[in-house]
Amino acid sequence: MALLSVRDLEVRFSTRKATVHAVNQIGFDLESGESLGIVGESGCGKSVSALAMLGILPKAGRVTGGSVEFGGVDLLKLPDQKLRQIRGKDIAMIFQDPMTSLNPVLTIGRQLTETLEKHLDMDKDVAKKEAAELLERVGIPRAADRLGDYPHQFSGGMRQRVMIAMAISCKPKLLIADEPTTALDVTIQAQILEVLKNLTAEEHMALILITHDLGVVAGVCERTNVMYAGKFVETAPTAKLFSKPRHPYTLGLLKSVPRLDAARKERLEPIAGLPRDLRTLPPGCSFAPRCLYATDRSRAETPELHTIDSDDHLVACWNPVPDADIPERHSLEDPGAS
């Protein structure tokens, strides 16, 4: 049985004027120890899916359908009090901006120990020792001395390490990292990804890595789901996705990743047009208005995920990218941006 099994998850945001269809019936399975990347543009519903699974959507958002089974229990049906016992303990989350994700008026130590005290019933002194060890593990020097420090006394990369230490403190079975490196500069990005990769391997944690950056998933994730307008449009083992992208949107994303080995005069190709307005969802493929491969059928009928090439490669497209159009150098070995 899969550790996490999401089926037909649907999230809506109600504003006074309109309803935003943020997530539209997504589904996936995740085994323990597996790592999954979810990739897409800003606003495509990546983060909202994760928040919905944990039951911490912003006030305007609500789950309108589907199920999220974790260890055989549907999290969406769980009363909040029971869900709180899983949140932070079995499923932990790391957020995008380490600058704002830590409480500025509490010490790092306190923010670490409160999770340990809540979920593992540790008393204060034990929790403090454990907190120091956790900081040590994520590579913060003189950890014990820094427990009394406040977030503003740490650099961005160090703060993200603290966030990771907090997330792994109860040895979760699943770690969700939402754009963990986006707010950091490139060298720090690589370090943080390294820490994440090592820890999930050591603890046999499953990982969902949410990012807009294909370079980031390339080095870390076994599988990658590409998301557009609240739907998965392509899912494949990461290597296959990079070598044989079948959805025109995936191809577009790959072409817009900067590469160090590209010829000087080769320009990045942005995807034309703007992301879909999620207030209305007319029939047809959401990507059709921006797609070079769109057919009449794309504009009339919504495509569902179906296998292509092999059993583990699925795409939701009526007119997948033919081999001839796939540039050769998009190999996993050199993802460029990571």
């Binding site: 016992q85 949140r87 957020f95 500025p104 979920h119």
Partner: peptide, 11 residues
């Protein structure tokens, strides 16, 4: 964001 973090911790 830090209130979201606190909620994500299951407090």
């Amino acid at each position: 964001d830090y209130v979201r973090t606190a909620r994500a911790k299951g407090l």
